[in-house]
Design a protein around this nucleic acid. Sequence first.
DNA 1: ATTTTAGTTCTCAAAATTATGAACTAACGA
DNA 2: TCGTTAGTTCATAATTTTGAGAACTAAAAT
Lengths: 155, 155
Amino acid sequence: MVQLTKEQKQLIEKIGIYHEQQGFPPATGRIIGLLYVSDRPHLSFEEIIDTLNISKSAASNALNLLLQMHLIEYITFPGDRKRYFGALLENWHEEVINKMDSILAFSKLLKQTNELRGNANPDMNQKVLERIEFLEFLSKEVPALLQKWIKERQQ
Amino acid sequence: MVQLTKEQKQLIEKIGIYHEQQGFPPATGRIIGLLYVSDRPHLSFEEIIDTLNISKSAASNALNLLLQMHLIEYITFPGDRKRYFGALLENWHEEVINKMDSILAFSKLLKQTNELRGNANPDMNQKVLERIEFLEFLSKEVPALLQKWIKERQQ
DNA sequence: ATTTTAGTTCTCAAAATTATGAACTAACGA
DNA sequence: TCGTTAGTTCATAATTTTGAGAACTAAAAT
């Protein structure tokens, strides 16, 4: 059971709400919040449920979801059956790439609208095309930006 | 009532699902889908509810949400009380900017986690800081990219 | 003045999501 | 072997979201 200050609790809720807006269930958002806010980098299953007052099943489902999305990791220690869960802070590369993939998937749908429309409305096709091209531009340039940033850091 | 082919109907559903994943209610996603797929650039309230088989209230709420988010617009004609709703295809600038704002808001929350942590875990603070800096970098560079793209287009 | 139209708002029901608590499992420990 | 621990899974309850249908409003049309 982790002892938290009022500020820490409030910040966990804010981080939770942000993640809810990104599509996560409330309990999942709070777990992420706790792992971000905690002084200790890794907390056990038990500590998480005791600290957040959530059920084992909610925690189990949330942790597995977060593991699957590579937003958290767990470590273990010899002679200790527990897993210790912590935020996976280095993996936002993947997040950015995924976001770009989703944008690219949408731009493919937009392409299909133009194809289906044929030349029934050339003006609309033109506007849609512009948007498609921007989305493709973004999907190309943002990963390039990522590389640029990594390179600048390395020096 | 708009007559749609099987392909058009399927594409509307796909665009609908994409928008559901972005947090919109199903009916709202379908309206966006219809307005993207339609040959005609603007459809009346009545045409929308007849074509999609949704209730007036669902349509009313969805259209107002989409208007408020600047994802659609409506036009009117003299001597015609109806509003004709159409996709607002030029406004993705705003979407990009909003997305960056939201990312920046999150990076502020991350900053707070570091502040609250003090020097209880310098290693974690360092990793969080790296992420903050990347998010800030992104929030600066993506709008710049947008400008670059606009400039290239204008020529 | 009354009716029609275009849409809004309200109430409520259906559906989907999320979380609980209990039962369960598999490994470990005594 | 029997109990304990660390979590998972299941049935179900609580909550939230979404949408339908009816009642309503305000402007326009007759």
